[in-house]
Structures are given as structure tokens and as C-alpha cells.
Design a binder for these strands. Structure first.
Lengths: 225, 225
DNA sequence: TGAATATAAATTGTCGACACTTTCATCAAA
DNA sequence: TTTGATGAAAGTGTCGACAATTTATATTCA
């Protein structure tokens, strides 16, 4: 799904590894990161590790303060709302641009993909892995279909890992999946019809719905504790 | 206007200095950055300079490639369009949120500010410095009025220096200033009326107009060369 | 001449050590 | 006990040197 194959340097590898550890919760939210400790664990020097930490800061997965140190971001309800507001605006834009700039063949590919996901979903029902991958794949293609490289970089490289972190650590899956498929279909149809305004509206609703879904779950868990 | 006073470390200072040099064009667009050379010039080690380069990459002012090096971003017409599309979406969102979240006193402050800018403009007519500063001040206050810290960080820390770079290096000033004042007034009035939808629309138009203004100038210059 | 190859120079990536700041523990005084 | 000062410990910031890669130059062969 994602081209991690462009890992050319040691700090690249460490960056990818720590990013995964944070997204999947193996390094706890809000926990402090010790440079010496992590460097030793990954078998690199502190300079290399700091390079990786800088990139993690660029994707908003950690926060640094001078002379104080580095902490994994904390996923509060407020933060969730903030990130989803930004994501909605940016992916809405991406979707509108996709309606202007996606080629026929690119659109057809997405349609095929949706059908594949549908059949896969029927077979593998209950396994959220495929659903999650399929959803991300769909969104990535729309985003890249915008042909706006700045927007693509912002969403794919700087924001989506944070969104994945929310989804993974809050156990987002299940109930919305079938609805999401229909929404995806409506979006790609709007794009196919070159109706950017509608495509933007549908994407914003789609993201708003999934955001609200996570938020509900989050609030319930907060109350339960 | 901006709180640069939080420069605590050597790399902070180098970051601020190089950022200014890039924004103001003292380091040419698209030019390659030699780590050794720049480190020597600023009187720091390469490690410190690389720290600064990482942050410059976070604000999209330079682009790095592994084992190749670092280049100052090139301001092409395509890039301009891309950045302004993103800016429009994000500041539109900020403006809508500001209509929901700005306090009465914050709104009053902005109104006072606009009047100050107006009188200053009359006195110092022709000097674009005050106009530029005033415009930035207005936008910063609306952005911060959104109370969305993620959005604020994205716009103020990661995008605005790039926008300043466009404006400074393309000599953006003059003709739109008086219009901009009226537009600013309409926006803050919409916010005051808690009309987020209108505020968002007006802000999007306002940015779109200034973007188009720069773009026209850019195209003319390109043709002239 | 021109393309391919090999060697040298320059540049970036990485490392270990030291300097400075923050934090924590200890202790003295009110 | 609480507060504030003092010093040790831990952690981050910075440095210079070495390793690995890329780029430039020189050379050889078709």
C-alpha cells in the first residue's frame, strides 16, 4: 500500500520502525522518549536517532521541547476533533481536485478496487484488517488523484500516520464498514461525473461520519473507566 | 508580531536566520545548500546546521534527498497554485471555527487593529511594510481565533513562511491593499455575527483574490523574461 | 570523437565524546 | 513541615572525525 521501499539510510529505517511502534501503541501515548535508550535499542547513535525524531515530529507523532526532551503525542478527544477538522477540510479539497484531475483509467482502477474490496469483505467478514487497508487505499488514491503534490505530501506524509494512530489505538473498525463502501462508491461516481462540488461534499460527510464514529467510541470508553 | 523570542538553542538561531535568508531571497530559489559551507558561515557545527535544515524542511522551505543534499524550494507557478489551494481550504476552516470560538474581546481587538491599520495606511501610504505586516497580523489573529491548535500550528509554523516567501520575492503589495481592508472588515463582521458559513466563504474569496493577484504578476514576469 | 570505466574529490550519513541544561536528591534554615 | 539552596545524576545540545555515497575528473577503448 505504501512505498516504504525508499528506505535508503539508517535513520530512515529507525524512523519507520519507531513510527510503527507509536502508531500501534507499542510505545505508549504521552510517554517520554529517552534518546540514549532508544538509540541503544535500535543499534544506532544518538545523532541518527535524533534525525528520526525530527521526522516523527514532522508527522506530529512526537513533540519536542528544547533541553526538555521528546514525548509521544497524547490522543485526547480535543486533539481528535482538531485533527479530523483539518483532515475533513484537506480531503474535501483533494476530492474536489480529484474530480477535475483524475484520468478515466485512474477512476476505473478505483472502481475495480472497490469491487475487489467488496468481494474480499464478504469472504473475510469480521477481519477488520482488509477493511482498514481497503479504506486507506481508497483515500490514498483520491488524494493522489488531486495531482496537488503539496496537498498529497501534507495528507499522506504528515497527517495520515496520526490518523492511523487514532484508528488503531481506538480499535476503529466494524459497524461502519458496509456504509463506508456505499459512501466510497458515491464519491467515485461523483468524481467520474466531474462533479467536484458534490464529490467534496460527500467526502466531507464521509470523513465526518467516521470521525463521529471514533469519537462516540472514545467518549464511551472514557465514561466506562 | 511573531514570537521569535523563544530562541533557546543554537540551532534555533540558525534556523531563524536561514529561514529569513530564504524567505527574503538572499539564498536563491532552487539553489543547493552546502552543509559545510553554511555551517562555517553561521559558526556552528554540521550537526547543529542539520538540525536547522530539518526544521526548514518541516516548513517546506527546503527539500532533502538522502545522500544527495538539500535544495531551497523553487517557486514555480504550479507550486504557487498548489500552496494557495491548500491555504484557502485551511484558512477557510480557520475562519469558520473563529466565528464559533472567538471571544467578544478578541473580536473587538481585531476591529481596533483594522482601524489602526487604516489610519497607518493613510499616513504611510506607499510603504508596503505596514500593509504587509497588518495583513499578516489580521490573518494570524483569525487563525488563532479558531482555537484549533493543530490547525494553528499547520498554518502559522508550517505554511506561512512559504507564503511570505512568495509575497516577498514576487513583490506582492500595492494595488490590492485598499480592497483587502474592506474584505478584512467584512470577514470580522461575519465572525462577530457568528456566521461561520459566510465568514468561511469571504475568507476563501479573500485568499483566492490575493492568490490570483500574485499569480497574474508572476505570469507577466514570466512572459517578460 | 564519444562512450564506458576507473580513480579522485567533494558531500552527506554516522559515530563517540564533551558541554550545557534540566531534574532529582540531599541538606540547612525558617 | 516546609521552603530554599546545593550538589550530583541524568538528559539534551553541540562538536570534530570517520565511513559511505555521490559527483567530478581522468583515462581507456571502440
Amino acid at each position: 500500500m505504501e512505498a516504504n521501499n525508499l528506505v535508503k539510510t539508517a535513520s530512515d529505517q529507525v524512523f519507520v520502525d519507531i513510527r510503527q511502534a507509536i502508531v500501534e501503541g507499542h510505545i505508549a501515548q504521552g510517554s517520554k522518549i529517552s534518546e540514549a535508550e532508544l538509540a541503544k535499542y535500535h543499534g544506532v547513535s544518538r545523532a541518527t536517532l535524533r534525525e528520526a525524531l525530527n521526522r516523527l515530529e514532522s508527522c506530529h507523532l512526537v513533540e519536542r521541547k528544547a533541553n526538555i526532551g521528546c514525548r509521544v503525542v497524547a490522543l485526547t478527544p480535543d486533539k481528535l476533533l482538531e485533527v479530523y477538522q483539518v483532515r475533513t477540510a484537506l480531503e474535501g479539497l483533494a476530492c474536489r481536485l480529484a474530480a477535475e484531475n483524475m484520468t478515466k483509467s485512474e477512476i476505473e482502477e478505483v472502481k475495480k478496487l472497490l469491487n475487489q474490496h467488496l468481494s474480499t469483505q464478504k469472504v473475510k467478514q469480521g477481519e477488520s484488517y482488509y477493511q482498514e487497508e481497503g479504506d486507506l487505499d481508497f483515500h490514498y488514491r483520491i488524494i493522489k488523484g488531486s495531482k496537488n503534490s503539496h496537498l498529497i505530501h501534507l495528507l499522506c506524509n504528515e497527517l495520515y500516520q496520526l490518523i492511523r494512530m487514532f484508528r488503531v489505538q481506538m480499535g476503529m473498525n466494524g459497524p461502519r464498514v458496509s456504509k463506508a463502501f456505499d459512501e466510497h462508491l458515491a464519491i467515485i461516481n461523483a468524481i467520474d461525473a466531474k462533479d467536484g462540488e458534490l464529490a467534496e461534499l460527500l467526502m466531507k460527510r464521509h470523513i465526518g461520519a467516521s470521525g463521529a464514529s471514533i469519537k462516540t467510541r472514545f467518549n464511551l470508553e472514557v465514561i466506562a473507566q
